[in-house]
Simulated assay, not measured.
Amino acid sequence: MTATGCTTPIVPEIMPATDVRRIRRFAQLSSASFPADLAHRLEAARDDTAEGHRIGVAQATHMTNRLPTEGALGLPTSP
């Protein structure tokens, strides 16, 4: 059991945020926050698909590396 009382394993999945419009919409629909720094960097790269992809993959990599320190047991691997 965890500190919150949840005993169900949670398997995190990471989707790189590469399109600022799409991520803003996801955040709006789910009432989630969209970090201002990431939004600003993606907005600046709005017309440069390769740069938006690089930013999104770098952020996803950072999150993936951080998950184990936050208590996640691991990430699923692709088949």
Rank of each mutant, 00 (worst) to 15 (best):
V57W: 04
T4N: 09
V57S: 02
A60K: 06
V57A: 04
A32L: 09
H53R: 11
S30Q: 04
A39G: 07
G5R: 03
V57F: 01
I14G: 07
V20W: 01
T2Y: 13
T69L: 06
F26H: 03
P76H: 15
G71K: 10
R25M: 10
V57N: 02
G74M: 07
V20Q: 00
L42Y: 07
P12N: 02
A36D: 07
H40W: 15
I10L: 08
P12C: 03
A60V: 01
P35N: 01
G74W: 05
R25S: 15
A45Q: 13
P12V: 03
A39W: 09
A72G: 09
T77G: 06
R22G: 11
A50R: 02
H40A: 14
D37I: 00
D19A: 08
A36R: 06
T49N: 03
A17H: 15
R21S: 08
I10E: 11
R46C: 08
I14S: 11
R41Y: 00
I10W: 08
H53M: 14
P16K: 04
R66L: 07
R22S: 14
G5V: 07
G71R: 06
R46T: 09
G74C: 08
G71F: 09
A60N: 02
T69E: 09
A36F: 08
N65E: 13
P79N: 13
L38M: 01
A17S: 12
R22N: 13
T49P: 00
A27R: 02
A36G: 06
R66H: 10
A60D: 02
A58Q: 04
P9N: 07
A27F: 01
T18H: 15
Q28Y: 11
I23T: 06
T61C: 04
L38H: 04
H62K: 14
G52V: 09
R25K: 15
G5Q: 06
T49M: 06
A3G: 05
F26I: 06
G5Y: 05
T18D: 14
F34V: 01
R24Y: 04
S31R: 14
Q28N: 12
I55M: 06
E43A: 03
A58Y: 06
C6Y: 14
P76D: 13
Q28G: 09
E43F: 02
H40T: 13
M1L: 10
I55T: 08
P79I: 14
T8V: 10
P76V: 13
S30R: 05
I14N: 10
M63Y: 05
A3I: 02
T61Y: 10
R25V: 10
A72Y: 13
V20L: 00
D48E: 02
A44P: 07
I23K: 02
L73A: 10
T2V: 13
P68Y: 03
C6T: 15
T61G: 09
T61E: 12
M1A: 05
R46Y: 09
P35I: 00
R41N: 02
M63S: 08
